[in-house]
Amino acid sequence: MTKDFSILSGLTADKARANGDGGGDHARAMAAYLTGAQPRKTDGANIKVGVSVDQIAAARMGDRTRLASLEVGADSSKMAGGCDSGYSCIYESNMSWRSSTQPMPKEVSPKLIFERLFGSGNDLERARRDAERKSVLDAVRDDFRELNVRLGADDQRKLDEYFTAVREMEQRIARAGASNAPKLPAGVKAPAGIPQSYEEHLRLLADLVVLAFQTDTTRISTFVFANEGSNRSYPFINVREGHHSLSHHGNDPAKMAKIQDINVFTPRSWLTSSTA
């Protein structure tokens, strides 16, 4: 095992602690996990945390592959509202941050992830879709120039983030045109959608991340099994209580044993990926 994995220690997430900001451990935990930064306590639009380490790597080497990075998860990213003691829902459901104010929402649909990796339809259909996207991006660029001069500083920053995403889309289209999607490995079929079974959903997501690495479609990925504060139950391992509720175990041995069962299940579901 140690030959295949790098085990890191001494990584206490100090910025996930309150540090004078009061309640909100769940929001801080996810936001600080890969950024090492203290998230600004707000449930409004003025979110701020830091750039996550995966996106630092993507900025450095993402141009070597079709996808700079791949963000996947079993729970959808929340992009608005307040969720935890005055913190935005964005914090507790997004692990990857391209900038201090711009999260990288994770994709939960295996079907859509598969299409990002391998495309869909024939070459003519893909070329038509790319041309349509390019024409839309050209129109957005013109609107951006006209609108930007009339906005205040905060709105200009938000619009700049949006237009940066537009430019990245243009680059993705250019890269896709310059190199064909990787050949699908033998025996691999496109998934139909999101499985009802959480176990199967996790395994399917894990398979897709492995395929992304195997085909060198990307070299950087984050995988979020559940959003912070999730109260998901795990009846398939005889844990019918919610995860979050059990975490407040008060040193109850029975509850602690169930938390241990969940902690064992989580990495096992990744390590038993059929393509690993």
Rank of each mutant, 00 (worst) to 15 (best):
N122L: 09
N122T: 09
N122R: 09
D123A: 15
D123K: 15
L124I: 12
R126C: 03
R126V: 12
A127E: 15
A131Y: 05
A131N: 12
A131S: 14
K134Y: 06
K134Q: 15
S135E: 15
V136K: 13
L137G: 00
L137D: 01
L137T: 03
D138Y: 04
D138L: 11
D138M: 03
D138V: 11
A139V: 06
R141Q: 03
D142T: 10
F144H: 10
R145V: 15
R145H: 08
R150D: 13
R150Q: 14
L151F: 06
A153P: 01
D154A: 13
D155G: 01
R157C: 01
R157M: 08
R157T: 07
T164S: 14
V166R: 04
R167H: 03
E168I: 01
M169T: 15
E170V: 13
R172G: 09
I173N: 04
A174P: 02
A176Y: 05
G177N: 15
A178E: 13
A178H: 00
A178Y: 00
A178M: 02
N180L: 07
K183P: 01
K183W: 01
K183F: 06
P185H: 06
G187F: 03
V188L: 07
V188H: 06
K189V: 11
A190I: 09
P191Q: 12
G193Y: 04
G193H: 02
P195H: 13
Q196Y: 11
Q196P: 01
Y198G: 00
H201E: 02
R203M: 13
L204D: 11
D207E: 11
L208Q: 12
L208W: 08
L208F: 07
L208I: 12
L208D: 10
V210M: 11
F213M: 11
Q214A: 12
Q214G: 03
D216S: 14
T218N: 06
T218H: 05
N227K: 11
G229V: 07
G229D: 06
G229N: 05
S230V: 05
S230D: 03
N231F: 00
R232M: 05
S233W: 02
Y234M: 00
V239H: 06
R240A: 04
E241K: 08
H243V: 05
H244K: 07
H244C: 04
L246N: 01
S247I: 09
S247H: 10
S247P: 03
H248S: 13
G250E: 12
N251M: 12
A254R: 13
A254K: 15
A254F: 04
K255F: 04
K255I: 09
M256N: 11
